[in-house]
Design a protein around this nucleic acid. Structure first.
Lengths: 335, 335
DNA sequence: CAGTATGTTAAATGAACATTTAATTCCGCA
DNA sequence: TGCGGAATTAAATGTTCATTTAACATACTG
């Protein structure tokens, strides 16, 4: 009956709205029907009454938000029919309209986008919308190119760029809702268009040891291993600090950049919490000076020379014995 | 001990890599430890042995991918230091480098972005990276504006637009990996820059250097950075192999022990899959011979020699000025 | 006002999963 | 060869849900 049908639709819409709010509040991954029902002021069981399953609810939610967006967007195109430039402006206006461009809705979009790759139900819908959007944008750009005589401009590329920029600006709305300004976002897009199509948008719109052991000599060295490592880090830190100190924090960035790491990583070296890989060490030496190597490795190398001789002799002995055993066994040398 | 530590790191990294693959394959929402373990070829229980919880694993994964990206990006900035325009080009080159811009990695980013809003652990990391990125981009734009005399151009807006466009183009890489073309994406960004900063990125600037070659030069520089690391590993591997070969596998254990790592780790160096830390490199040199250093660092160091002279003079200058300031202030020398 | 269809809830069920625990394999060493 | 300890697995545990079911409530009908 019509009335029952209608009230059913009302509840469904109520649950879909609740789902969007719940995704915005708890995120897609930890969304439960209890959350949804809570947002709707209903009991959890009811969801399976109005939707066959949670999956269906989610699909309906995506369909709903896509429909919302699409409607607004179609209306915008209609409004901007007078000229391709007006069309693009209308589309931008729609894309940053408070109804579609707000933290809740955007977080719902991002949730579905992130899932779309692994969910055939979502993928079709999302891609369909995206394709259609691009097609229309491209046509508008093409018309502008034609009528404006922009010779070097590729309409497809301009459209792809615009679409990308809009999606990217939505990211800002998602990540820093407090700072995000819809008007400024529109201006950014218009500035892009003004730069690409100056005649149409120009003047008007402005936009991370050693264990079982070899022998006593080495064992001792390895007992000192941890300390050695710490000492190594300390030397490195000191050597770096010496070079950075006279200049202050600005140089850190430069040194980090030259070494190809973030300032945070560099600082973990300066604090002895971590040490560079050999490659990074090489870069450091290049970026600072060759003397750095002696300051950091020098003491290790010197102390080690004595142990090195002893080990070398022992190792030669070992190799010889191994060789003797092998040849007595088979006469064939091991490869 | 150190050996245990090292192999622990290897497993951790193995699990993090498996997590990224698993997110790409199953999505964040339906990611289970069984999936992760499956990708890693291990049993599910092991994850809670190496990470305290699934949450910790995910945080480590985000930290890892952020670090990866940040490293590439820092390297790009360093390469593009010559001019602000080259800086922007280098950033674009980095953003669309196959190492970071591929369906798997992008889907991991999207997964974390979508969750960031509701997960304080993710949020700080994601926003910190984004802020830093914007800051640098904006500075580059500001310098271009200043030197190019672009009167109507707002550097902040241009930077926001570029960042948005890049993020948006990643979306295309996520949604239609088959159709997505990294080169075209770069061109789209450069077309944007050309429209906004014609004197720096426009036809005139392009012909001056040869359009395609501009990207190629910087692309090559960044590729070289990634390859530089590979080359470094290759040289290390070759140098080590040369010393291990005549004796056979027994020496490996000895060398591993002397260096304070497990044979597995040593082998990962031999195969170029990993590289030692600077401390381990020092131990290696001690355990093998000092010549090793020249073989591994040599090519890099050559380049360093030239810089060495310049920096030495500069440093002496700094030291003198500092001394002057200190003695004028207190007459007491700093220790 | 009984009787029935419909909407809603609360509790029951069972599956999936993270985490823990016990058992097993693996490795270095005496 | 057997021991001790670490790495790994396999099984156990307990929790969190989606979904189902039974009960309850409300509204409509004759």
């Amino acid at each position: 009956m019509a009335k029952a049908e209608a009230s059913k639709e009302i509840r469904r819409k109520q649950l879909i709205d609740a789902t969007m709010r719940a995704i915005g509040r708890y995120g897609y991954a930890s969304l439960t029907l209890t959350h949804v029902a809570g947002e709707a002021g209903l009991s959890p069981g009811i969801v399976n009454f109005y939707f066959k399953s949670k999956d269906q609810l989610l699909i309906a939610t995506l369909e709903n938000i896509a429909e919302e967006y699409s409607t607004l967007w179609q209306a915008a195109i209609a409004k901007g029919k007078v000229s391709p430039a007006a069309g693009l402006e209308a589309m931008i206006e729609a894309d940053f309209h408070a109804f579609v461009c707000n933290p809740e809705k955007v977080s719902v979009w991002y949730a579905f986008w992130a899932e779309a790759r692994n969910n055939a139900n979502y993928q079709g819908l999302v891609m369909g919308l995206e394709d259609e959007y691009l097609k229309v944008t491209e046509q508008l750009c093409a018309r502008i190119v034609a009528e404006g005589g922009y010779e070097g401009v590729d309409a497809h590329q301009a459209a792809v760029g615009l679409n990308a920029m809009i999606d990217g600006l939505w990211f800002d709305c998602l990540m820093s809702p407090a700072k995000f300004d819809r008007q400024a976002a529109k201006r950014t897009c218009l500035a892009y268009l003004a730069a690409v199509f100056p005649a149409h948008f120009g003047a008007a719109a402005a936009t991370k040891r050693g264990k079982g052991e070899v022998d006593a000599n080495i064992a001792m060295a390895i007992d000192q291993d941890v300390q050695g490592r710490d000492a190594h880090r300390a030397r490195l830190a000191a050597a770096l600090r010496k070079r950075l100190e006279p200049v202050g924090p600005m140089r850190r960035e430069a040194l980090a950049a030259a070494t190809g790491v973030s300032v945070k990583v560099l600082e973990s070296w300066l604090e002895g919490r971590a040490e560079p890989t050999s490659w990074q060490m090489g870069r450091l030496i290049v970026a600072v000076d060759a003397q750095l190597w002696m300051e950091v490795y020098g003491p290790v190398h010197e102390e080690a020379q004595r142990l090195f001789e002893a080990r070398l002799a022992q190792q030669r002995d070992f190799a010889e014995r191994e060789q003797a055993v092998l040849s007595s066994l088979s006469g064939k040398p091991k490869d």
